[in-house]
Amino acid sequence: MSKLFLMFFGGRKNPVWVGYVFITVALIILPFLVEASMGRTWVRILDFALIYAMLALGLNIVVGFAGLLDLGYIAFYAVGAYTWALLASPQFGLHLPFWAIIPIGFVVAGIFGVLLGAPTLRLRGDYLAIVTLGFGEIVRIFLNNLDHPINITNGPVGINLIDPIQIAGVSLTKSHEILGLEFSGAHSYYYVLLFLLLATVFVCIRLENSRLGRAWVAIREDETAAQAMGINTRNVKLLAFAMGASFGGIAGGMFASFQGFVSPESFILLESIMVLCMVVLGGMGNIWGVILGTFLLAILPEVLRDVSGPIQENVLGRVWLDPESLRMVLFGLALILVMLLRPSGLWPKR
């Protein structure tokens, strides 16, 4: 990356930090530019893209690094979201502060990761995919039905009025004016999510370039050979499940607090597949590729929704196909094209 910046900023004349400063400033003013040009809805879309990026990076540890195909990943997102919802909402009357819930969500989701990982250690490929798919559904169905005999999750109705992040008594979902600039909830959350995403990227890069990251890739490439090189494949795989799940848990918590509402509907199989698409489309195993894939897939459907109606009116005279359904068709087409033209993702590892 730093080489890229160097090239961009004219080689030796400018030091690397100029590139970093430029990127930092761009990321800080981005939500204002987006709001000014496209409206506040798009800042929210950007926020969701950041949440998805965290989620995809977590899945990338499991699928991209360790090569364990997980089709139930959204379950950890659900666990994180419900952990936050139960600990900071009128549901049980608990209102823990965010700095307590984030680590709790991290640990709880990690435990669920190990719970899924432990029975599937001997499974590979398709078989693992089927079991993880089942796991994802089990979690969702539990959330859907745990309103009786004792009401824990409120069932299909979901949990409402979830506390937003509060810093020094100031709620982040309300609008604030600082130095004449209006910070809406979406703006404030943008910075929190950006910080968490950068932290996730940092952890992922560190893990990737470590003894453990190499062990994960070795297991992905050839599990038998990895064992024969003295890697305790059981522990290393469980670690991948736990780390991936933990990031999913944090992302889920952020989702719950940002939305203020969770219900089992948000954690259907399609969501798991969507996150997997982000990882695969961007380039499995490459952190920057995964982020690219996430932003494309989180933003493209919204662009298609906005664009496909007016285009039909201009070209065909009236709207023939409902933009809402057309966008999924175009979205699918885009996925097929990418996979045909760049089978190892848009930005592959090597």
């Binding site: 190499r214 890739v217 070795a218 490439e221 050839d222 038998t224 050979a225 990895a226 024969a228 590892k349 090597r350």
Partner: peptide
């Protein structure tokens, strides 16, 4: 049958 970690 050689079993290296191919992409590494």
């Amino acid at each position: 049958n050689i079993r290296l970690f191919g992409t590494m």
